[in-house]
Amino acid sequence: MSGHLHRDDFGSRLGMWLFLVTEMVLFGGLFIAYSYMRYRYPGEFHHGGSELNVTLGVINTVVLLTSSLTVVLAIVAVQRAEKRRAMTFLGTTLVLGLTFLVIKSFEWGAKFHHGLYPNSPHLATLPPGEQVFFGLYFTMTGLHGLHVVAGLSVLGVMLWWVATDRIRQDRYIHLENGGLYWHLVDVIWIFLLPLFYLAA
């Protein structure tokens, strides 16, 4: 059936944006929960935030911002039919995304090492507000991490499609949509950084 429909890039992008709407609201729900709890426990959140590693957080921000840049550059390259360049850019994005995950896992590892994980005996001794802080921290960064993994898989496929010419100068809507998703993941992290690391 679908073969009979004309190709509708605008429609595809609209569909993607609508999907991003749901993602925004999904994280929006968590941001609502965060602000609610932060309003109740300002002191505990401040204390909890001071236990996070700011340096790693900031490095990760720059990593993600750069990976966003390379995706958008890859689209420019495809538009200009510069296949090699496009592949290099996408490859860089994948490497940066993996770097982000590795740094994140070190960060989580350190927290686990200090006994700061949900349901841990150490956490149970902390004041209630701080338990909530770490609950939110692990939930939100964890969910974001899952999105990074999903985004990386999508972009991996895109790289493959660029290599096999399924994505080319006159047909790159999938790359655009994949890019949109990756940028949204980036935007979410832009919010997570100050909420947990800087201004808690």
């Binding site: 966003s68 840049l69 995706v71 958008v72 655009e176 890019g179 949109l180 940028h183 949204l184 980036d186 935007v187 832009i190 919010f191 950084l193 100050p194």
Partner: peptide, 16 residues
């Protein structure tokens, strides 16, 4: 202030 600005930049340019 700055965070929404950053997000806005990403939306406006990177996300076309």
């Amino acid at each position: 202030t700055l965070t929404p600005l950053k997000a806005g930049l990403v939306f406006y340019f990177f996300m076309h």
